[in-house]
Structure formats: structure tokens, C-alpha cells
Amino acid sequence: MLRNLLEKPWLPQPDNVVGGNAAVAVPTSAERIALRFFLAIVGVIFFLFTITFLSRSQYPDFQALAGQPWQPLSNPWQLWLNTVCLLLACASLQWAVSASGKDKADFTRMGIRFAQLFAILFIVAQYLLWQKLHGLGFFVASNPANSYFYLFTGIHALHLLGGIIALARVSLKFRQNGSLPKLAANISLCATYWHFLFVIWLLLFALLASSPETYRTLAAMCGFLR
């Protein structure tokens, strides 16, 4: 990129230069470039939510969901369970990617199915967790920490749902014409997106299950202390 920007196009140039994207050593597909930008956008969205969370956490009415034994996320076994679910979904999809690379259609299909199954299971489990918290009296609007919990998990689930739909489209194409090499790239794009969402989930999990002291430290690092 930098070398491109240092070019001097106004000087006489040898006519055999064909330039264009020929300078790029490793060809990257347009889809992958677009996906990278999309991941950047999703990253910015969660980053901004997190920043507002840290700022909001320093207001006196904020009661964190973890830190004291009686708070629901102090012993987040259910969140760990969900995390394992999502991990299995990502692992299955990765399996499908490597199977599609070796031209094994059956394994690919199975990998995709398991990935969808575990991802849907994850969303259902998140929903059950919502219901449990709601049952315990942690309503959406009763405390900003609760609001953020529902907001973070909800937005994350929506993104995962988008990923499931994209994967469903790929597997539909797979059923229709079944040509693996063409679809391998698409499956691999889906896998990248899912892994990214898994990493985001880990960060959200860590954030949501932290104690008020951690928030305070992080907020101090951002200059949010009041």
C-alpha cells in the first residue's frame, strides 16, 4: 500500500507497466476484502457499545451483575455452557472448511449441519438465560447493567443469526449444484465470520462477568472516572 502511495504517476513511465492489482502478491477475493471491512464495522459497533458501557458503569446507579456471591453472573456456569456450545459450532464449521478443502462432500455437509445446530442451540440457551434473569427480577430497564446485558447478548445473537442465514444459503447452494471447490471459499468466509463472533463473545463474556473493581480499573484507563 505504502509503495503504491509513493508512486509518481506524472513522470514518464515504461509502457510495459501493467500495474493494477498485479502488485498484490497473494490474490485475495473481493468477498474476503468485503468481509474484512464488514468485520471492522462489527468490531467498531461492539467497541463503541463497550466504551459506553465502561463510561456508564461509573455512575452511582449502576449495579454490576457479578462480583458479589448473590449476583447472578458471579457463578456463570450457564454462560460457560453457552460458550462451549458456540465453540463447538465454530469447531464444526472449521471441520467443514478443512473437509471441503479435501473435497469430502459428506464431511462438509455434516460439519455445516453441526455448526448450525450448535449455533441455534447457543441462541436458544442465551434466550433461556434471559428468561432466567427475568424470572429472578433482573428486568431490562431496572438497572443499566441489566440493560447492557440484554443489549450485548441480543446484538450478538442477531449477528450470529445473520451468520446462520448466510451459512444456510451456502448449504442450499451446496444441495443444488454440489460443486465443492466453488463453495469451499464461501464456507471458509462463513467460518471466518463465526470465529470472529466467537472472539467477540469471549470478550463480552469477560466484560459482563467482571466485578465492579475491574470496571473501575478499565474506566480509569479510559479516563472515565468521576
Binding site: N4, E7, P9, V18, G20, A22, A23, A30, A34, F37
Partner: peptide
Amino acid sequence: GGLNYVTTVLQARTKGMTLMR
């Protein structure tokens, strides 16, 4: 739209169309 514009500029330039041209 934006994903399209960015990707098109990065990926669909014709032969000889370097970034600085």
C-alpha cells in the same frame, strides 16, 4: 453500498490502473 465501493476500488481496477493513477 460502502462495502461495494471500497471493494470495487480495491479489487476491480483494470490493467494499469494503479492506486496512484
